[in-house]
Design a protein around this nucleic acid. Sequence first.
DNA 1: CGGTACGTTGAGTCATATCAACCATAGTGG
DNA 2: CCACTATGGTTGATATGACTCAACGTACCG
Lengths: 226, 226
Amino acid sequence: MVLCEKCAFETNAVFRFLTRDEIDRLNFEKDFRHYRRGDILYHEGNRISGFFCIHSGIIKVFKTGVDGKEQIIRFARRGEIIAYRSVLSNEPACTSAKVIEDSQVCFIPSELLIQFVKTNPSFAFEVVKLTCNELAEANSYITDIAQKTVRERVAEVLVKLVGDFGLDDQKFLRISLTREELANIVGTATESVIRLLSEFKSDRLIELSGRKIKIIDLKGLEKLSS
Amino acid sequence: MVLCEKCAFETNAVFRFLTRDEIDRLNFEKDFRHYRRGDILYHEGNRISGFFCIHSGIIKVFKTGVDGKEQIIRFARRGEIIAYRSVLSNEPACTSAKVIEDSQVCFIPSELLIQFVKTNPSFAFEVVKLTCNELAEANSYITDIAQKTVRERVAEVLVKLVGDFGLDDQKFLRISLTREELANIVGTATESVIRLLSEFKSDRLIELSGRKIKIIDLKGLEKLSS
DNA sequence: CGGTACGTTGAGTCATATCAACCATAGTGG
DNA sequence: CCACTATGGTTGATATGACTCAACGTACCG
């Protein structure tokens, strides 16, 4: 059994601002679940009766564009919560969420979050900060997509993924995505990502082995993303 | 003298969730200011000691890209607050704000907002909802810029401006922007906006008279923005 | 062994950016 | 009152980044 108090402190989840009683309620009411790569946690447009806190694995959060193309908005990993926005706004989900790497996830009923926010001011303040941070990131994202070239954005995504997920001892990125998923972050075509990755490879910035990307020259990538 | 209680209820500002005492403090501590077109309220990267509530006029909130190009993130008008994100995150401003239409604005010290959020749960809840809504909009924005063509985005911006600012009795948009500003919303070059606008004019979707845009066929624009 | 999903490469096209020239307007200062 | 300047708007020519389409390779899986 995974205990929220332990998990929250290990991961810096927002829940570390809950009182002992509130944590107990969380432990009691949450539903611990396993998901495998490809599973859908929730669908854009649907009403959901709760939200998710990731215990392990990686989830992609995305919107579906007019022609059905995915736009990846962010990744969520250990300690992060998703779908809380819809719960707090009391609106249908404005994104979908799908498993990238097999995950263990707690599902928590909506009422609990709303109650905590309404009754625990310091928790509410943390949730506000959380949304503000996401907002700041979204604003940068908008500016980048609007102004940078695809090459710059591909380089930037690699740098960002290094920052978020890190490298293993062989300098391989600790997240592996399909080329299509990379394209759906950057907002470009799969073929363009492929071409740029092999260009970066020729330029000795990265090495490729299947879906695994080895980062050779991080500084070079940073410079490219300008 | 502009009174917050009156203003807040007329405009649906978040402040309508404050208590009588809190509103009084707001009235006492706020600083009422006038700004003219082109004035800067605050600069990206600077720390600010408070935030702004718009009483009249229009403000553009934007980020500056690597090459100095503005990316307009949103517009703020009567009843809306700006720069609150930086205050709550206790970080330097991640955007700049500039006056589009002569404005009357209240400047409110940071401590007040933080205190209200920390001590008034229902106000905090409204602030959370506010940020969540902005976040949802930002996510749509990302998807649109990443996936739609410039033509679709220009049509979409016009539709959105109609929704946000409305039309006067001659069907002219109630906000007038330079072509460059339009380009900086859409994320394109000024010349492209000019060409597309005159194309829309040929197609009897709009009429142009200087900076004023007359909306002839809103449905047509909606269809174009797909 | 066939199927499905993913990856790669090439060729051709097109939307959009860039560059350059020019016009209109309004404000400024001598 | 008139050059002068700055700002914004417009148009055309040209270049090119990125998308699309198509073919084919690869790998894994039941």
